[in-house]
């Protein structure tokens, strides 16, 4: 057996490759239908910006799902973190932070990250220590984080986001690339490297593949699970801060389905809901499939309401594929 055949087999066997093919085919089809509109820099840019926040959520979700867990709370944690961050910045600047400087922005960032971390820690401790299923724990924090955010903000959006923040991270660019996209790309790159090359990543896979085996092998399973949910929470906090910068407001609404979008992206990207297998690279592709479908439908004039239906079909097909491959393997 030469390394090359091994690599080729791995590539062909990997879900990631098929997802990449699907994505390329989609882009090619839309590109052929409307070559003028699809591949322009503007389309690409808006697609990228709109996808950045979801991508950051999905990177954390990838880790969670690889441990055979799930995190329904990310969208609510995003809202909560945005609210606490915006309100802190306002409070530090006489009630309206629009003209505040970098010091205030930095505090706002830390508050957003800490808020996300707090919810992640709650999720992780409950899941790892009590054995309550992740679905239930994070269903609870899904409701609780949103409720807490609404309580703090009195149920309304929080405005007064510093201009220095919106103009740089929110809408600024660097050599034509939106800063928001750069940040998401950096987070994704680090997430992919940690998952793919470090002991932390290896243990994440091992726990999802066989938790008892991981425990017997001396992997600190409880601690590791707490850290994984903590990571998902911190990234949700960061995503909240990014949304704040982009929309210039911490909005209460519009994030009810972020959790499902992130899960869909992760699963579309070839990560197994049964745990033990998946990749951040796949998640990147999975994030772009719904986004490309939506943009593509708009551009070629298909009713956009077809988009969720199309995504659902691809999603079910992806899970079905994963399931049948697993079944075939486990029969041995």
């Amino acid at each position: 057996m030469t390394p090359r055949t091994g690599l080729r087999r791995r590539l062909v066997g990997a879900n990631t490759l098929w997802i990449a093919v699907v994505l390329l085919v989609l882009i090619a089809v839309f590109g052929a239908l409307r070559p003028d509109a699809v591949l322009t820099a503007f389309t690409l840019q808006t697609t990228l910006v709109e996808t950045s926040v979801l991508l950051v959520l999905s990177v954390g979700m990838t880790y969670v799902i690889i441990t055979a867990g799930i995190d329904l709370s990310v969208g609510s944690v995003l809202v909560f973190s945005g609210v606490t961050s915006a309100m802190t910045m306002n409070a530090l600047h006489d009630g309206n932070a629009t003209t505040a400087g970098w010091g205030v922005v930095l505090v706002g960032l830390l508050v957003a990250l800490a808020s996300g971390a707090a919810w992640g820690l709650v999720n992780g401790l409950l899941i790892a220590r009590t054995g309550i299923p992740p679905l239930i724990v994070t269903l609870g924090s899904f409701g609780a984080a949103l409720g807490a955010g609404q309580l703090i903000s009195n149920g309304s959006n929080v405005a007064g986001v510093p201009d220095v923040l919106s103009d740089t991270l929110g809408t600024g660019t660097w050599f034509g690339v939106p800063n928001l996209v750069l940040l998401a790309a950096a987070v994704t790159a680090v997430g992919a490297l940690v998952l793919g090359t470090t002991a932390f990543g290896r243990h994440t896979y091992a726990i999802g593949s066989n938790e008892e085996a991981a425990r017997r092998a001396g992997i600190p399973v409880t601690r590791h699970l707490v850290r994984v949910y903590l990571l998902a929470g911190v990234l949700a906090g960061l995503a909240g801060f990014m949304a704040l910068a982009y929309f210039r407001v911490a909005s209460i609404t519009g994030h009810d389905t972020d959790n499902l979008n992130a899960i869909a992206a992760v699963v579309l990207g070839g990560t197994s809901l049964f745990g033990g297998a998946g990749s951040v690279v796949g998640t990147v592709l999975g994030v772009f499939i719904p986004a490309v479908l939506r943009k593509g439908f708009v551009i070629v004039g298909v009713n956009v309401y077809w988009q969720p239906i199309a995504v659902a079909l691809v999603l079910v097909a992806a899970v079905w594929l994963d399931q049948s491959r697993r079944r075939a393997r486990d029969k041995r």
């Binding site: 091992a206 593949s209 066989n210 085996a213 992997i219």
Partner: peptide, 26 residues
């Protein structure tokens, strides 16, 4: 060291990763 009746291996990881499970080389 123990070979468990249920083997206690991680089915999604390759043989080398299982051999070094919990004792990965850095």
């Amino acid at each position: 060291e123990t070979v468990y009746q249920d083997l206690a291996v991680a089915p999604d990881l390759d043989p080398a990763a299982n051999l070094f499970l919990g004792r990965e080389l850095r």
